[in-house]
């Protein structure tokens, strides 16, 4: 564990806590894409099956359990909670997220490190995570006056990805035989998707304005 990896994990944890805070305390999910949240639940469910097959560390297991629990909890709130579900921008959140799942699965069947059940699902989760933010970015663009919590949520998600890239660079130079092409390329694609958002986020922060993405 290096400082970049830890910073990445903490950003990820913090982004989810922000989202849970908004949903649980303010009882609103305005501006949050259910499509993206469903994709994350699928990402974690397919990646963390190794909870049952191997042990890495207590930290690792607890984090995986938190990500699984929180992603399904958020989806539950947005779909079924009496108050929260009414604040969901259903008409704006129109991204056809099912169309992301099949291509990612086919790609995982074709490009993977080992053709085993767990390995293909793990690879699928990497490809899917890379594009899972797309419905959220589209929704942000459609929402005039993005509220602060939603903006910060996406910012910390993007920060998590950026720290992971620094972590990979650090590990490449400090560990022997550390290379993971599939993880790196999907991670780079994922981080690149945030570039545009970051630009407008920093701009609105510097001008102390509310975040507004161009239509």
């Amino acid at each position: 564990m290096n400082i970049f990896r830890l910073a990445g994990d903490m950003s990820h944890l913090f982004s989810i806590l922000l989202l849970l805070l908004k949903i649980h305390t303010i009882k609103s999910c305005a501006g949050v894409s259910l499509k993206t949240q469903e994709l994350y639940a699928l990402v974690f469910a397919t990646r963390y099956l190794d909870i049952f097959t191997g042990y890495i560390s207590l930290y690792n297991t607890l984090m995986k359990m938190f990500f699984l629990w929180s992603s399904f909890t958020i989806v539950w709130y947005m779909r079924y909670h009496n108050v929260v579900r009414r604040s969901y921008d259903k008409d704006q959140d129109t991204f056809r997220h099912y169309f992301l799942i099949l291509p990612c699965f086919i790609l995982a069947l074709l490009v993977h490190e080992k053709f085993t059940f767990l390995e293909v699902l793990w690879t699928f989760s990497l490809y899917l995570e890379a594009v899972a933010i797309l419905p959220q970015l589209v929704l942000l663009q459609r929402t005039r006056n993005v509220d602060n919590l939603t903006g910060h949520y996406v910012f910390f998600l993007g920060a998590y990805r950026s720290f992971y890239i620094l972590n990979w660079i650090y590990r490449y130079f400090t560990e022997q035989n550390y290379y993971k092409w599939i993880t790196w390329i999907s991670g780079l694609v994922q981080t690149a998707l945030y570039a545009d958002f970051f630009y407008y986020y920093v701009k609105s922060w510097r001008n102390s304005e509310r975040l507004q993405l161009p239509a």
């Binding site: 990820h12 190794d50 890495i56 990500f67 490190e113 972590n167 035989n177 550390y178």
Partner: peptide
């Protein structure tokens, strides 16, 4: 470690 099996990252 070959990079294939060690999935210590989240």
């Amino acid at each position: 470690s070959s990079g294939v099996t060690d999935k210590d990252e989240l």
